[in-house]
Design a protein around this nucleic acid. Sequence first.
DNA 1: GTTAGTGCAAACCTTTTGCAGCTCT
DNA 2: AGAGCTGCAAAAGGTTTGCACTAAC
Lengths: 171, 171
Amino acid sequence: MAAIGIKDSLKSQGVRLTRQREILLELIDKSGKHLDAETLFELAQKQDPKLNRVTVYRTLKMLKESGLVDELDLMHMGGDQHYYETRLKQEHAHVICLRCGKVEEFFGEPLQKLRRQVEQHFGFQIMLARTEIGGYCAHCQVLREQEVEAAAALPPTTTAKRRSATAAVAK
Amino acid sequence: MAAIGIKDSLKSQGVRLTRQREILLELIDKSGKHLDAETLFELAQKQDPKLNRVTVYRTLKMLKESGLVDELDLMHMGGDQHYYETRLKQEHAHVICLRCGKVEEFFGEPLQKLRRQVEQHFGFQIMLARTEIGGYCAHCQVLREQEVEAAAALPPTTTAKRRSATAAVAK
DNA sequence: GTTAGTGCAAACCTTTTGCAGCTCT
DNA sequence: AGAGCTGCAAAAGGTTTGCACTAAC
């Protein structure tokens, strides 16, 4: 398990490996990706009911600052919380369906190319990069089409406003 | 001024053009880019002291949902607030210096290429995309180098922790 | 004249901070 | 032993909501 890599990295930085951190590290690394603080907290509490939410935040902050995990927004799909994933060697974009919430990852050379171009163009030293793409997945495109039509047909209440409402995106 | 385009777009959606919205629209469109809600609020208040902060949030939300402005995080440089810019035809990445806070914009074909690849690869319908790159600008790289060395030299207090602290990034 | 939009106050949600006590190393 | 870490409570920061009043069309 890759969590060992993280543990070693932390130890070499003089960070204490507490019971709480062991739990959180395991969860972040093993559980499916893109956990937010609250979810991580709930999972951790199952293993240690005493573990406090604050510890989760403190640990995430530390991991983020150590460059061991990346913080994502995922287009604020479910509110304004942040999501976390262990940092991969390979840069990737997150593709988020605004209807079903599914998150896909996309690896491709345009990302590396972009990186190189920015470094050259600005003489910039890149520490972290994040690409998030929001839209509708193949499956939801047709469902959304139906929803839009249904909404436009039924309520003869407001007229013009109706159209724009279909562009609204869950916050 | 481009704000007219936005106004027309709103009118065609049946959105009322109030005095408050006129003020906010002008500001968003004319003022330098990347305003956050609070700054926008302060600017707007100079023109109308009665204008409420809540109206700013409501207006931004509406513009965002109408696809007229884009919401940015800018790597959470100054906290967790969001930044806004009128949506450009041309997609671009935001390059943020983590030391001085300067934000550069980068236009380049890798962004279009990435977009096309994601659409093809997943059969995805892209509604919005965001690329943010954090690091150190040419100017701050040397300054940071000095700061890091100074920090490593002076305080002989904590030992190992010292090294990791240099990796810490302003939140 | 309607209905959308505004202001105000209060709530909400996520994240941070202060401090006393606990625990890794 | 002792600095680092945790838990608890409380605060902070950003954003949203309920409701009565106002103003745009």
